[in-house]
């Protein structure tokens, strides 16, 4: 399954994008300055958007750039700037407890190894199917057709989350 017989431009693009994305993700968890972590998160989100574009999901890639690389990263950086009370170099330190660090590493390695083994032992379709050209129209039909209840529930969830975020961040006035 890992044979590299016909190495095309598509494959080279995947390797480059995947490499950048993984490096960005590593940066998020390994940088000791949380501002670098947040910028690294933006890189990762853009890499994931590029992967969506490569997978013929252009609409989703655009949403990814708008929502994640735009809105959510700004929200995170805003919170980081609000909540920094120490020197910036030491804002994103790893845990001091050796036990927690050891458990985290062990769980991560075991999970990754089991997923890689599962992927290696599975049968996969040999060729990619022809992608949908008009995925936006199909998404719209699905959203307002079979999945309209989920669509409405998502709308209500967003409304409740925004109101809840405002109330939580505003805090209770002590009288």
């Amino acid at each position: 399954m890992f044979e590299f017989s016909a190495f095309s431009l598509y494959d080279a693009a995947f390797l480059a994008i995947g490499g950048v994305t993984i490096l960005g993700a590593l940066g998020v968890v390994l940088f000791r300055n949380i501002i670098y972590s947040a910028l690294s998160l933006v890189f990762t989100m853009l890499g994931v958007a590029a992967i969506y574009f490569q997978l013929n999901a252009g609409f989703l890639g655009a949403i990814q750039i708008l929502v994640y690389a735009g809105a959510i990263s700004v929200l995170i950086i805003f919170a980081v700037m609000l909540l920094m009370n120490k020197e910036a170099r030491r804002t994103n330190l790893p845990t001091t407890r050796t036990k927690a660090w050891f458990a985290g590493g062990t769980i991560t390695v075991m999970m990754l190894a089991s997923i890689i083994a599962a992927v290696g032992f599975s049968e996969w379709p040999k060729t990619a199917l022809q992608g949908v050209d008009n995925s936006v129209g199909m998404l719209a039909e699905l959203m307002l057709g079979d999945y309209v209840i989920a669509f409405e529930a998502a709308a209500i969830l967003l409304l409740v989350a925004v109101i809840g975020a405002i109330i939580l961040a505003k805090g209770v006035e002590n009288k």
């Binding site: 994305t21 990762t44 999970m111």
Partner: peptide, 25 residues
Amino acid sequence: MIGLPHYILLSAVIFSIGVYGVLTR
């Protein structure tokens, strides 16, 4: 030839990095 398993491996690596971050930061 990049196929579905490669995308799943990429996603597994990113997910594991996320788990590591949740458990150790």
